[in-house]
């Protein structure tokens, strides 16, 4: 028996992944301008796209999180989460390599008012990249378990 296709493992993975992204969407939906500021600070995206990212990415996190948890469109949600996490790894990694301290903004509001040194920001970037690698692995497990499943198994997984 292939443990990576284990139904219970997939449920636990879906629970962790779904809850993580729903939690991640909460502060962004509560304060879209704050998330726009986070995206701006990456210095990677054209000005005209910043608000569009800030409007739609949190909704993707929320709805895909619900999809992963409920089992409806779980494969699509897992694929989306994998791609989104890869995107953040690349963005953070690029900024880390070029020496631009960036607040990820993945799981909390922008650090307005906090006196963060660049050294601390770089340490946080590394930690957040590691978290994102973990999220890619979780997404891959769900995809592997559900995409490789036979039609009947896939149905029972939702």
């Amino acid at each position: 028996m292939n443990i990576f296709k284990n139904r219970w493992l997939t449920w636990i993975t879906a629970l962790v992944l779904g809850c993580t992204f729903i939690y991640s969407s909460y502060h962004k939906l509560a304060d879209p301008p704050d998330f726009a500021k986070v995206i701006y600070n990456y210095h990677l995206f054209p000005g005209v796209l910043i608000h569009l990212f800030a409007i739609y990415v949190p909704w993707f996190e929320l709805l895909a999180g619900l999809a992963v948890l409920s089992g409806i469109w779980r494969r699509g949600a897992a694929l989306g989460f994998g791609l989104l996490s890869l995107f953040f790894i690349c963005a953070l990694g690029f900024n880390y390599l070029r020496g631009h301290p960036t607040v990820c903004g993945c799981f909390g509001t922008f650090a307005a008012g906090k006196e963060w040194t660049d050294e601390l920001k770089f340490a946080k970037m590394l930690r957040e990249m590691l978290v994102d690698v973990g999220l890619v692995i979780l997404s891959a497990q769900i995809l592997y378990a559900t995409v490789a499943a036979k039609p009947a198994e896939a149905l029972s997984e939702g």
Partner: peptide, 8 residues
């Protein structure tokens, strides 16, 4: 998976 992603 791709079709589901487009729907989402």
């Amino acid at each position: 998976a791709l079709l589901e992603l487009v729907a989402i």
